[in-house]
Amino acid sequence: MDAFAPSDEGTWLPVSAALGRSRRISLLLAYVLVLAVVVALFLVPDVPRLVAIVVAVVAVAVFVWAWWLIGRRVRAWGYELRPDDLLVARGIMFRRLVIVPYGRMQLVDVVAGPIERWCGVATVQLHTAAATTDAAIPGLVPEVAAELRDTLARLGEQRAAGL
């Protein structure tokens, strides 16, 4: 059995492909800076042309790789609502599976940055008394995120336990 497969009776609910769009926009914005550096290398006369070309090639290669990786990483996210707990899986190289019992959730946040809002995605962030829990589901359509937050809050209320 694969450690990061969904549980026997369930399947992973995927996150929205719009998450990939928002991350690619962030990547493009970051590359505006890289582009400026590369152009500067070509314009400054003291820099050998070869160095500038090598930097430009590396920058393009990293860009293509990151662009492709974003798609794979978005597809690697998955979550499953089980009767008593929430499962969240993510990662390709470093894979993670988090199991959060509903009774242990202390609060649920919905967060969306400006690029995410523009692309129409939001992140549902879960908090327990442990700082290491690290359970977040990014890339949810705002309506789905709000619904999930309410569902989680309701389930948490029903199964609330002390510390």
Binding site: R95, L97, I99, V100, A130, T133, D134
Partner: peptide, 24 residues
């Protein structure tokens, strides 16, 4: 508080994974 399963590339190559039991 919660339970996590993690697996790095090296662990994956030898078919291992770590299980973390989160406490306060």
């Amino acid at each position: 508080q919660s339970v996590r399963v993690t697996q790095g590339p090296w662990q994956r190559a030898v078919g291992l994974a770590s299980v973390w039991f989160d406490s306060t």
